[in-house]
Computed example of a mutant assay.
Amino acid sequence: MSHDTNQSAATGHPRRPRRGRPGGTLAAVAAKVGVSRTTVSNAYNRPDQLSKDLRERIMGAAAELGYAGPDPVARSLRTRQADAVGLLFGERLGYAFRDPGTVEFMHGLGEACTERGRSLLLVPSPPGSASEGLVHRASVDGFVISSAAVDDPNVRAVLSRPQPAVIVDSPLGVAGVDFVGIEDRAGFAQVARHVLGLGHRRIGVLSIRRGEDVDAETSPRLLVERIEVGRAQHPVRQQRLLGLLDAAAELGIPSERFLVSERPYNSREEGVEGARELLAADSELTAIMSITDVMAIGVLDELSHRGVAVPAGLTVTGFDDVPAAQSFGLTTVRQPLEEKGRIAIETLLDDRPRTRAKRVLLPTELIVRASSAPPRS
């Protein structure tokens, strides 16, 4: 009984082609099919340029001869292009697939990479990590740096490479490097004006502190004190808190009663803990403003558990407008998360002369929903 030469006699599973087997070369495949070597190469690298029938004939001949396709390392050395983009991500890798705002951003990155024929290499850079080796070894045509700390050694490693880089959100003010983001301070001022305009004066704020601060003291402190903590290292959170102070100053409202609770992670569970902490510190709060939707939804969970009606008993707001915000009726600030990822790739891969850094600021929009109302009498 004969066996298919491409099947394992023991398992029936397809054999993995063995590179370097006699006859297993691009030239041999071209000769067998009767086409040029360029046509064989296109079957792997530009399949849209061949008919379906021709590509199937080429791939069938390659499998028969044991040819596994062009060597990507050799191609990269020859063309000096990796056809890949690196993403230096300022959190643990799992966070990229769990946080809804990051998922939206990643979707925009992925779609733009696909349209431009690039793959995406994720390089995690959680707080306190020192993985510069991953950056230096990464075979990519450029890097997107997302939400990294100012003193992150991996950022320095990326910027030491000759390939272009684009910073998304933070760090701020890096000379000579393209930037894509939003006006975080102005964006948070939008929702702060809304809450203050409704008449709220006793306000709690939920913020995030980065992972290296997880053992830091967490009890609520006055807003002005919190802003001074780590201002340079964590510009996004500090800019959003400053937006509340801006709105209060515009209305002549003193900020002495604004309390801030900083939680170690951006999660729904931390929103629950933050709400408990703020309400224990000031039972007369009439509003809780979160710098993210995810933690704001955690606040809604805790208030529901306590039987506190929203917004009659307490106003709750967020920031980002992640997909779940609408279903929870959350008043928030919308930022174009998916578009931010797409524009980051477009900025990184455009062929303009790199004589000056490009700065792209995307718009934000206040979205008023059912979670905000004037304070209880």
Rank of each mutant, 00 (worst) to 15 (best):
L244C: 10
S283M: 04
A9C: 02
A344G: 03
H305K: 06
L120D: 05
V73S: 13
L303Q: 10
A112W: 02
L300S: 08
L366S: 04
L285K: 06
D320R: 08
L251S: 13
S304H: 14
R78S: 11
R210K: 04
P14I: 02
D351A: 14
S283E: 15
D4C: 01
P162M: 12
D99V: 07
A287L: 12
T364N: 15
A165T: 02
T79Q: 11
G12N: 14
Q238W: 10
P14L: 11
V155Y: 15
S146R: 13
A357P: 05
P220W: 00
K358E: 14
N45W: 08
S290H: 02
P311E: 10
L337P: 11
G12E: 12
P126C: 06
G23L: 05
S377T: 12
R116Q: 15
K32D: 13
R15C: 08
F328I: 02
I58S: 11
A138D: 07
R75C: 09
A325M: 08
A96N: 04
V333S: 08
L245G: 00
P14K: 03
R226F: 00
F328M: 10
V360T: 14
V310G: 11
I208K: 11
E262W: 03
R369K: 12
L109N: 01
R334V: 02
E250D: 15
V294E: 15
Q7D: 08
G274Q: 13
Q335I: 09
T25A: 03
E225Y: 01
G271F: 06
F97C: 07
V85F: 04
D4E: 06
Q7A: 09
Q238P: 00
H13I: 03
P363T: 03
D48A: 14
T39G: 02
A248R: 05
R55T: 04
V103A: 14
